[in-house]
């Protein structure tokens, strides 16, 4: 776990960014912050709890579509508040994870590579289903998703300008990071580390390991659902690509490159890969994917703890030897 001062430095630097950069980049970084939030959810589930969820985008996509459907008035004309949309998105993603986790962990006892394959398959199935769901725009998705409206009691405070929207997203992301950091520093977080190391030993002390896994899975899904909801409101567009195979594997790469065991590193991993992609993708064309793949393989072999987590860990070593 990254020390708090380090997280403070990172979020302060992100807060200073719009003062120095053009509006276009502020808009891009808003999206990258959201991908970073999404990466944190996988870091929690995969890196900290050892649950190989290779279809994490399903929760991102569910959050996105629920937010879009609510705020566009597809659910009910009166229920278009952004607050309701965000709450519904988080609850829907968490609820789906609870149901899925109940059947996969408690019902079938799935873990490891089997769970990875099943979750990836479910994400793929959801993507295909949405592509033919005409009420939700099918292949074209839902365009014209309204921006986040912070107004209350009939007043309207729509955040459609780049800078205020950036700060709202940054505040939400920082708050979720602080909450997850606190959760991981609690006894529950220590037990998660123990579970990752030796689940059998934990069970013989009286812990119900499958319930612990289910709790983390649901928390991770709620965070991913929130990220998806924020994304469609910023992008003003929800499409089947948000829920499927592609984004599920992309987030795996961000998290693995950054460092899956350190939430802050996974967060920065997502931002770094997206920043590099927008810089190099045009320059390198199709070779970008090849270059990213090579970097990924080199990092997995040489720096398995992650390209960002390894130097950050060195920077702060000695004080956090117990891995929490």
């Amino acid at each position: 776990m990254a020390p708090r001062w380090l997280a403070g430095v990172v979020f302060m630097a992100l807060a200073a960014f719009p003062l120095l950069a053009a509006d276009y980049w502020t808009g891009q970084l808003t999206r990258y912050l959201i991908f970073g939030l999404f990466a944190m959810s996988l870091s929690l589930v995969w890196g900290r709890a050892g649950i190989l969820c290779f279809g994490q985008a399903m929760f991102f996509g569910i959050g996105g579509y629920v937010m879009a459907a609510c705020t566009m008035g597809l659910v009910g004309g009166a229920l278009t508040s952004s607050y309701l949309g965000l709450a519904a998105a988080v609850l829907a993603a968490a609820g789906f994870a609870a149901l899925l986790g109940y059947f996969l962990f408690l019902g079938r006892g799935l873990s490891g590579a089997y769970l990875a394959i099943v979750t990836l398959a479910i994400a793929y199935i959801l993507e295909q289903t949405l592509k033919s769901a005409y009420t939700l725009g099918a292949d074209n998705g839902l365009s014209g998703v309204p921006p986040i409206d912070l107004g209350l009691f009939g007043a309207s405070v729509e955040l459609w300008q780049e800078t205020p929207r950036y700060y709202l997203v940054l505040a939400i992301v920082a708050a979720v990071y602080a909450a997850l950091d606190r959760l991981l520093a609690s006894p529950f977080g220590v037990v998660l580390t123990a579970m990752h190391g030796d689940p059998r030993r934990l069970a013989f002390f009286g812990y119900h390991v499958l319930s612990l896994r289910l709790i983390v899975f649901v928390i991770g899904a709620a965070v991913a659902g929130l990220a998806g909801a924020l994304f469609v409101a910023v992008d003003e567009f929800a499409s089947p690509t948000l829920i499927g195979f592609g984004l599920s594997t992309e987030v795996l790469i961000w998290v693995a490159l950054g460092g899956k065991e350190m939430l802050l590193a996974a967060f920065l991993g997502a931002i770094a890969v997206r920043l590099m992609e927008s810089t190099f993708a045009e320059l390198l064309g199709d070779f970008w994917i090849l270059a990213l793949g090579l970097v990924f393989m080199v990092s997995v072999v040489l720096l398995p703890r992650g390209l960002i987590a390894t130097p950050l860990g060195r920077l702060t070593s000695g004080r956090h030897r117990d891995g929490t």
């Binding site: 006894p187 220590v190 037990v191 580390t193 123990a194 990752h196 190391g197 030796d198 059998r200 030993r201 934990l202 002390f205 009286g206 030897r321 117990d322 891995g323 929490t324």
Partner: peptide, 17 residues
Amino acid sequence: AVFDALSVARNLAVPAW
């Protein structure tokens, strides 16, 4: 079977919790 990633004190805290 001990928790390698945790300190000795934390290894004892886990069963106590």
